[in-house]
Computed example of a mutant assay.
Amino acid sequence: MGTNPLTERSNTMAPQNQPALVMLRLAQVILRTGLSRSTIYSKLDSGSAHYDPTFPTQVRLGSGSAVRFIEAEVNAWLEQCVRSARSGKIKAVVPGTRSAGRREIEGPEVIA
């Protein structure tokens, strides 16, 4: 009896102990981070005042215009944001103030 290609694992597949590489569309990154599309692109633009070299970069798929973000990198960036916020090493804008209203905020009181 022959093998069924739908149920047989190929030798070219990743080993079972390696996690699957999950790719996210921009809309999914927006939902996960709570950032707007323009903010995400500003974080990726090295010429922007909002440039963040730690923000995950896009991966181009093939020769077309399709790009994705790697889920693990987005999650790691979010975790780093939480660690920074909880350690009190983040600057936040206090609602109702202008840029002069930036001040250090401790721990869980961080306003994003």
Rank of each mutant, 00 (worst) to 15 (best):
I90C: 01
S63P: 08
N17I: 13
G2R: 08
S99W: 14
M1G: 11
S84M: 12
A66S: 15
E104G: 10
V93Q: 07
V29F: 00
G2Q: 07
S46M: 10
T33E: 04
D52T: 01
A112I: 06
L31M: 15
V82A: 05
L35M: 11
D45L: 07
Y51G: 12
S63C: 13
N4W: 06
P95Q: 07
S65G: 05
I90W: 02
Q16G: 10
I30H: 04
R37F: 05
V22K: 10
V59C: 07
K89Q: 15
E8V: 12
N17D: 13
M13C: 07
S63K: 08
S10F: 08
V93G: 04
A66R: 15
P19A: 15
I111Y: 12
W77T: 02
E71T: 01
R86K: 15
Q28S: 05
S84C: 10
C81H: 03
S84I: 12
S42M: 10
I40Y: 04
N75M: 12
G96K: 05
V67H: 13
G107L: 09
S10Y: 02
I90E: 01
R86D: 14
C81I: 04
G88M: 04
Q28L: 08
R98Y: 14
T39H: 08
M23I: 09
K89N: 15
P15D: 09
N75T: 15
Q80I: 05
I40D: 01
R60A: 14
L24R: 00
V67G: 02
V110P: 00
I70V: 05
F55A: 05
G64I: 06
R102G: 09
V67M: 11
S42E: 15
K43A: 01
G96T: 11
R68L: 00
G34V: 09
I40T: 02
E8G: 00
S36M: 13
T97P: 04
E73T: 00
S42L: 12
A27F: 04
Q58Y: 01
E79L: 11
A14K: 05
Q18H: 12
E73I: 02
P5F: 05
I40Q: 03
T39S: 15
E8C: 06
S99I: 12
L24C: 01
V82G: 00
M23W: 03
S84A: 14
A49G: 06
G107C: 13
D45F: 03
S10G: 08
S99M: 14
D45G: 07
R103A: 11
Q80T: 10
T12L: 11
T7C: 09
S38E: 14
